[in-house]
Computed example of a mutant assay.
Amino acid sequence: MTRAVLSIGSNLGDRLAHLRSVLDALGERTIAVSPVYTTAPWGGVDQDDYLNAVVVAEDPAFDDYAWLRFGQELEQAADRVREIRWGARTLDVDIVQCADDAGTSIARDTDPTLILPHPQAPNRAFVLIPWMAVDPSAHLLVDGAARPIVELLAELDQSERDGVLRTDLVLRDESARSC
């Protein structure tokens, strides 16, 4: 079994519906869902703001590559087009981190298909803030060491943190279980 932290985002079409499609596909595998945040696009490409959230999920049959395939299938179902790096997208599903049965983070840094944990996660407030909302004690493997996400967030520029704004939108009606 693996537990995955998924960062989901959308800035094209019905953004909220695209994010909800991830929860619909996950079903009972969903452990926790963050609030929805609005954020400016990252990467310098001119485009509309994103809706972002973090979902924590578990599946006894999934390994890290199964999570990758799952996310890619959801992106394809949402008609995601990959033309411009960091460009606009209907749906983006990033695997931030996977952990095995023992809770040990899976690290992959030599496979170009899947790098874990996500190499840019420590630099992105739009990942760390929603993640902290569902699991404030979470740690992320950075350069081989488990670091509290609260520390990583504190190291980011204040303007980066201030650009992640909580909305009143919800991804599901019932309360998420705690991590």
Rank of each mutant, 00 (worst) to 15 (best):
A77C: 00
I31A: 13
D63I: 08
R166F: 00
A78F: 02
Q158G: 00
E75P: 04
G43E: 10
A102V: 03
V150K: 14
R29Q: 13
S159A: 14
T167H: 04
C179N: 09
A78Q: 00
F126D: 09
P148A: 14
T90G: 01
D14T: 02
L51S: 03
D63P: 04
V54T: 07
W42V: 15
P148R: 12
V134F: 02
R147H: 05
R29E: 13
S10I: 06
R147E: 15
R147I: 15
L19W: 02
G87I: 01
A53W: 01
W131F: 09
D79W: 01
N11C: 07
R80A: 11
E155C: 11
D63N: 15
G9S: 08
A176E: 01
A25E: 04
L51W: 04
L171S: 05
L152D: 11
Q120R: 15
D63A: 08
I84K: 08
A32W: 05
V45R: 10
D100A: 10
A4H: 05
R85C: 04
L128K: 08
D14Y: 07
E155D: 15
E174Q: 12
H118A: 13
T30W: 03
A25N: 09
A145G: 03
G87P: 03
E160Y: 03
Y65N: 06
A145R: 15
V81Y: 00
A40N: 05
L91Y: 06
S105T: 15
A107Y: 06
V45E: 09
S137C: 09
G27K: 04
S159H: 05
